[in-house]
């Protein structure tokens, strides 16, 4: 079974920077309808800032270091809601990767679970509130389910990407309970949550980086 080792994650973070640069305008437009229109630019800025700091981590950086560097880039350089929420995601996931030469399915579960719980606490947000949690939580569930079934990485990452995509799509009819959009009369009904789209892009990139 192929492992998610340092090389994989190094390639993945580079791919994430490219993916979010490509999706920047689309995400900003999505956010412009129901938020303040900064989400795409914030995501792209976070990954670009992180990637710029990777060379300082050495030729083959620790997985935990890549996650914490990315988290700190989001926290330090991005601001807004996006900076804190995605900063928390990478920092908390990174803590669970401490000392690991590779992330096996159990480790990835622990990382994503820790990130999910921390974001729920930090953002005071629950499933169904119309947030990035609505893509992240089903992805974590899918991961656990696939591990029980003894799936390989390809199947696991495909399931992660698909469940996150579906979770994001499921935010479309939701009325927002968090964020600026809750002040709008329609509370964002009819629009997907841009943060959940970013989670879907994240897992899609993980899947594509395996090839």
């Amino acid at each position: 079974m192929q492992s998610l080792n340092r090389d994989y994650w190094q390639k993945t973070f580079a791919n994430l920077a490219t993916a979010f640069e490509n999706e920047k305008v689309a995400l900003c437009q999505m956010d412009g309808v129901i938020g303040d229109g900064d989400h795409g630019a914030s995501m792209a800025r976070g990954f670009a800032e992180a990637l710029a700091q990777f060379p300082a981590l050495g030729d083959s950086p620790e997985i935990a270091a890549m996650f914490s560097t990315t988290g700190n880039a989001f926290l330090g350089k991005v601001g807004g809601v996006t900076g804190v929420i995605f900063g928390t995601f990478f920092i908390e996931a990174g803590k669970k990767a401490e000392g690991l030469p590779e992330t096996d399915p159990g480790a990835l579960t622990a990382m994503l679970d820790a990130a999910l719980q921390a974001i729920k606490k930090r953002g005071k947000v629950q499933e169904g509130d119309k947030s990035m949690i609505d893509a992240l939580a089903p992805a974590v569930d899918a991961l656990k389910e696939r591990i029980e079934n003894g799936s390989d990485w390809k199947e696991i990452l495909e399931a992660l990407a698909e469940s996150a995509r579906q979770g994001s799509e499921a935010t479309r009819p939701m009325a927002a309970k968090v964020g600026r959009v809750r002040y709008q009369k329609e509370k964002g009904v009819g629009h997907v949550d841009p943060g959940s789209v970013s989670v879907a892009i994240f897992f899609r990139t993980l899947k594509e980086s395996l090839a």
Partner: peptide, 10 residues
């Protein structure tokens, strides 16, 4: 922060 966006924690 930036225009209409909250400042970062650091």
């Amino acid at each position: 922060g930036q225009i209409f966006a909250a400042p970062a924690p650091e």
